[in-house]
């Protein structure tokens, strides 16, 4: 089963929840994979410090035009919806950074002058941190489009055991790509106006996906009725409240997990799992 940890707003504690929940599940004897899908700014490795194993480059297909075969018919440019291939008077120019890798240009080409070639956008790394399986994607600097890489990370996750997906922030295509195939969705937020607003955007974004979900409220210092009201309006439960605690913030700042640095909070993640597990399915080994 796959559990995605996501949030509309950045910096609410996705990685903290994903990493510590993974460590709890390993401790509970499950087969666990942590998959870092925040490929623009992957940070999970800073906390899990995995022994790296296999690293492979990930490519998307972009058009390459053979000028000798090209008859300048103009079809590729006319059919491309992303302005990624433009037919000039004497030659065809491609803009790979705009290309969505759909393959239309090569299909419509009347002279078979277009071949699709690899363009590398990032890498996927596998490793292990103790008994925890670790997979992480990292987008190359300057690349704009991350969903193909996120899909590649997800493809590497095993079908058996539990996979915790650390999703990118926001509510647009990268976040949706990371969460849309999961079996359970954990939304992390904080009790601030920004946190609540972005949680609501996220709840709207995922309402069309029929995935069971719950909320983790992070940095709680006092009762927050506004977030509670919002959650009940959308029919989701607040499964866990992580207190605002300087010890957690300090551990985080140094790259330590709550699990190892503040063991008093281990029960938080056990309790969280006890709320998810009956809904997401009987996966406890």
């Amino acid at each position: 089963m796959k559990i995605a940890v996501a949030s509309g707003k950045g910096g609410t504690g996705k990685t903290t929840v994903a990493v510590n929940l993974s460590l709890f599940l390993v401790d509970a004897g499950l087969k666990v994979t942590y998959a870092d899908c925040d490929v623009e700014e992957p940070d999970g490795h800073l906390f899990l410090k995995p022994k790296s194993g296999l690293k492979r480059r990930v490519a998307v297909l972009v058009p390459q035009v053979n000028p000798e075969a090209c008859n300048l018919c103009g079809k590729c440019g006319a059919f491309c919806r992303y302005s990624a291939i433009v037919v000039l008077k004497e030659k065809v120019v491609t803009f790979p950074e705009l290309c969505h890798n759909c393959g239309v240009c090569a299909y419509v080409c009347s002279a078979q002058a277009i071949t699709e070639v690899n363009r590398y956008i990032g890498s996927v790394e596998r490793g292990s941190a103790g008994k925890l399986n670790f997979i992480s994607g990292c987008l190359d600097i300057g690349q704009a489009i991350s969903p193909p890489l996120i899909k590649d990370v997800l493809k590497e996750t095993p079908d058996s055991g539990v996979t915790i997906v650390d999703a990118p922030p926001g509510t647009s295509c990268p976040a949706m790509t990371a969460v849309s195939d999961c079996d359970y969705l954990l939304l992390v937020t904080e009790p601030t106006p920004f946190g609540r607003h972005d949680l609501e955007l996220m709840l709207q974004a995922v309402c069309s996906l029929s995935i069971p979900k719950g909320v983790v409220l992070n940095r709680v210092s006092s009762p927050d009725t506004a977030t509670e009201k919002l959650c009940s309006r959308y029919g989701v439960s607040i499964l866990s409240r992580i207190p605002e605690d300087r010890l957690i913030a300090e551990a985080y700042s140094k790259g330590l997990t709550v699990w190892e640095a503040v063991p008093g909070y281990r029960t938080l993640f056990a309790d969280l799992w006890s709320r998810i597990e009956p809904i997401a399915g009987g996966y406890m080994a």
Binding site: E41, D43, G142, S253, K254, G255
Partner: peptide, 20 residues
């Protein structure tokens, strides 16, 4: 922010602004 992740992400984003 003064965290390991803040530092890590700063290096990536500054590489992006340098690129542009």
């Amino acid at each position: 922010e003064p965290t390991i992740s803040g530092e890590h992400d700063l290096l990536r984003i500054s590489a992006l602004t340098k690129h542009f």
